[in-house]
């Protein structure tokens, strides 16, 4: 198991434990025995299954990946992770994965060292991505991803807030402006940053998106406290917005997601 694998599995265990502890300690659930089992058991099962899913889809080596020795596998893993997180289409990603595997296995069988074959795996992966998509297209695709993520987050946040007050009208649910700022920040800054190729693959680089988000939320908190006398800042601190005021807006959101996905496919195919 490589350093990256250990880190990923530890993170998934930590998140699952946090969820399980959170649900056990939730005051509203611990008071009612029937409610506790109704909510906590599914959460616990899903949390544990999530660890298994992470292992199966992110850690477990494929049939041919097992053929690579550790030196080659580390190079392969870096290239695969960068390509998989890129804006290339899923079909092309699979094709690249097979090509790289075949190339590396052939080189390994020929007795070449991994460094002779791929000196810098990050540069190699970036060159592959460039051969599929121009950098300007990548920016456009990332922007469309940001739109998709923010719509999904808004729909989820609205849904969760509505579930908290289930008797109320869905279309009267309001989202805090602060939460909205965080949603846009995560969609357009944090997710693209975390998907960017990293030449330094230490644990700190994996934690960077989380650190950026925490620092952003802290700065936002300090900013709203210091400048609370301004109306705009007051709105940011205590204001709320009705993001889904009626059925038409909801339909627009729901249509926007497949439209963005279609646009992404179109950009990949036509404007290479």
């Amino acid at each position: 198991m490589t350093k990256r694998d250990k880190f990923i599995i530890l993170c998934s265990i930590a998140i699952a434990l946090c969820l399980i502890i959170g649900i056990i300690c939730a005051p509203s659930l611990s008071q009612s025995n029937s409610k506790f089992w109704l909510y906590s058991v599914p959460v616990m099962v899903i949390s544990l299954l999530a660890i298994l899913a992470v292992y199966l889809f992110k850690i477990q080596k494929g049939k041919y990946e097992k053929m690579l020795n550790s030196e080659y596998y580390q190079k392969y893993e870096t290239i695969r992770d960068i390509v998989m997180n890129s804006q290339i289409s899923n079909d092309s990603k699979k094709e690249i994965k097979d090509d790289i595997l075949d190339m590396l296995i052939s080189a390994q069988e020929a007795g070449k060292t991994a460094d002779n074959v791929v000196n810098n795996p990050v540069d190699f992966a970036e060159n592959i991505i460039k051969s599929y998509l121009l950098p300007e297209r990548i920016v456009l695709l990332t922007l469309l991803d940001g739109i998709i993520f923010s719509i999904i987050f808004i729909l989820l946040a609205n849904g969760v807030l509505w579930l908290e007050n289930i008797g109320e009208n869905f279309f009267s649910t309001r989202i805090d402006v602060g939460l909205l700022v965080v949603i846009f920040f995560v969609s357009f800054i944090v997710i693209p940053t975390s998907n960017k190729p990293k030449s330094n693959r230490s644990i700190s680089t994996y934690l960077l998106p989380l650190i950026i988000t925490i620092v952003f939320i802290l700065l936002l908190g300090i900013f709203t406290r210091v400048f609370s006398s301004y109306e705009f800042v007051e709105q940011l601190h205590n204001g709320s917005v009705n993001m889904i005021p009626n059925t038409i807006i909801l339909v627009i959101y729901l249509i926007a997601i497949p439209t963005c996905i279609f646009l992404k496919a179109f950009i990949r195919k036509i404007f290479r």
């Binding site: 090509d99 190339m103 590396l104 002779n116 791929v118 540069d123 060159n127 592959i128 599929y132």
Partner: peptide, 15 residues
């Protein structure tokens, strides 16, 4: 040359 140089050229030519 090595694989890291040639493969991106092949994919570019293919694309």
């Amino acid at each position: 040359v090595n694989e890291a140089t040639v493969y991106p050229i092949l994919t570019r030519l293919q694309n």
